[in-house]
Amino acid sequence: MNAVTSCAKLHDCRDAFVTVLERLSADNPRIVAVCNDSVGSSKLGGFRARWPDRLVNVGIAEQNMVGVGAGLANGGLLPFVCGAACFLTGRSLEQIKADIAYSNANVKLIGISSGMAYGELGPTHHSIEDFAWTRVLPNLPVIAPCDSVETAAAVEWAAHYDGPVFLRLSRVGVPDLLPSGHTFELGKANLLRDGDAITLVANGTVTHRILKAADLLAAEGIEARVLNMATVRPLDLDAVVAAARETGAILTAEEHSTFGGLGSAVAELVVAEAPVPMKILGVPGIFAPTGSAEFLLDEFGMSPAAIAEAAVALIARKPSRA
């Protein structure tokens, strides 16, 4: 069990991404950054200042960006293709499928400002469909780190992994939850708190919210298990099945549509391996109204208090053990 560090300071995970990217790039001349004009929003200014030739900016042309990434990898380079998650995945999904996943190109896709990070800019800029679009593609790990520690570890891991990766980052500040020195393992959930009444599962910007919900539940005498499940694909089968068997109910929460994301992935496993009552929290299949990401997460029932309330209701649905 990982020790959970309590820290009120909020971190923009993009900072951890570029810090590690620049550290790795100093030692590995094969690393190049590719972007769609998103030098600022991907925080690549520092990278560009140090290695101007290694920043391949194709301009506002995401299909070309992803294809160029595949070609750079073919030429022996290690491209980190960075863009707002909504455009990177939505505009160039077919390139991700054919050029990256099917071709098994060693390209790291970095989706910036995912979920509803661009809250007030509206649904055109929200990326609450990207888990659904990407997790159906073979060969493509889909990862949404929960804090800056896990972001740093996942970037380090991705740079050494021989194959495509989709890393889904936010710009919304989150507290550090994992201990420093944490090592990322693909397809392994992190047990942040143990319990047997229910399991709460989340990733990305929502993990700290389920952890707070577990605190609220504990105050009521309900011990919830809390899993940070950064890897949406390949999913941690053992952790999900154990959660179902040992706690009898699973609540998932994500900054994504309730259709096709983390909750759906967990449900697919649960229904096949160990059916138990589930609740999937997320954006309920609508275009979100105006508001910040934090406001919208609360609006869609993902405040710690609302998650705790949903957990209590779900526990009530557990079959009684006669």
Partner: peptide, 26 residues
Amino acid sequence: ETNTGPLGHGLPVAVGMAKAAKLTRA
């Protein structure tokens, strides 16, 4: 060199290949 089929994919990938050669002096 790369999987094609959906049209309009090959040239962007070729641009990446040519750009890689420039960057690595291949």
